[in-house]
Amino acid sequence: MTTELRTAPPDTAPPDTAPLDTAPLDTAPLDTVPLAEALWDAVFAGDEYTATDLVQGALDEGYDPECVLLDVIAPVQAKVGEEWAANRMSVAQEHAATAINDRAVAALSTHPAARATIERGRITVACVDGEWHALPARLLAEVLRLRGWRVDYLGAQVPVSHLVAHLHRTGPELVALSSSIATRLPTAHATITACQATGVPVLAGGAAFGPGGRYARLLGADAWAGDARSAADHIAKGPLARPHPGHQQLDDLPHLEDQEYTLVTRTRTTLVRAVLRGLEEAFPAVRQYSDLQRERTAEDLALIVDFLATALYLDDTDLFTGFLTWTAAILTARGVPAQSLPPALVLLGEELKDFPRARRLLRQGADRLADPFAVPSAPARNHP
């Protein structure tokens, strides 16, 4: 199991997609399809100058800036994630493409057509601490600016204490909190609670919060939006109610009383070492791994433990089983047998024999992987 999963998936989505508005290229408004296809060609080729010229040229021709953001740049970024997941782009290419799309957003934001008059209140847009997928949050920030809001865009990986200090200093109407990586949800919970303790409501968005925002509601967010348009529309309808002190506490998930989440998190390194050692004893081929292969396998095992811990925090089976089927699809696309996963789950279960909820999740994960319809076949690897 020597994959490239360092780009930890948000829930079951590819890395650094734009989950705040990810319409596929072929479903975008018809007049934007040629522009989106041209931008994709430039992004795939790593041609930053052409990409930014396309965006600025579209604005010169009268394209609506919000439309360019959400019907051109966002779906192109979603396609970047899809191509990475299908093994048609390397991690380096995916990072380069994301950087180019970020530059395209910057080029749009400085164009005269995108300069809006501030006539509404103040909003803070930030990513959860540990969340480095900043492009979805930036897209929302730019849409809100276009609609006349004063926006404080704080970017990726904002520590809770720094965010709270900012809220005390600026007093915004709300915080738009973005997270694409499901393993950051426990931190998102603490962030939501801390923001609400200052009297500022929280609108959550991003793939990490699950289908239909199920985890946003579970973790007590004041509102949820599935994309940048609906987020901006929701905000425009009227201010969210200010939470009262004591509105929510971190002990509002009663299943956490069994301490399984805490103990799995604290013993993460020990668990990874034990499972890796077990794999070496059970499978002679693993003993012949190079140092790099061992390092990558350990990182993959750590990711499994992280998703297990998050599923324990949320008491949600689908999050863990969904991650495993996503991982199996990624392995398959890279020519690595998905059968490499179940032995790791068995060994992890042996280490967690005194953790009934964790063992249940591991059994359900193994059952899902055994389903012949759960893991898709490998896609073609050549760029069309």
Rank of each mutant, 00 (worst) to 15 (best):
P376C: 08
A97K: 07
V125Y: 04
D371Q: 08
Y215W: 15
A298H: 04
L292W: 02
P343E: 13
T52D: 06
L308Y: 12
L185D: 00
H168D: 12
W40T: 00
H133M: 10
E295K: 11
H247K: 05
L253D: 08
V202A: 07
P211N: 02
F373T: 15
T50Y: 01
E142M: 02
E48Y: 04
E173N: 03
D367P: 06
I304G: 00
G212K: 09
I73S: 00
V143I: 07
P243L: 13
D315T: 02
R184Y: 01
L5R: 05
D26V: 10
A38D: 12
E119S: 12
A194S: 13
A137S: 15
A104G: 02
T3S: 12
R242F: 05
L146D: 00
A221M: 07
W132C: 05
T297M: 14
A45P: 00
K353Q: 10
A104W: 03
T117Y: 01
K79Q: 13
Y49D: 10
I123L: 15
T198V: 15
R277L: 10
A374S: 12
A96S: 11
E295H: 09
L108E: 01
F283A: 05
F355Y: 15
P9S: 06
T110Q: 11
A92R: 13
A228N: 03
Q93F: 06
P284R: 08
L369T: 12
V286W: 07
K237D: 10
L108P: 02
V264R: 12
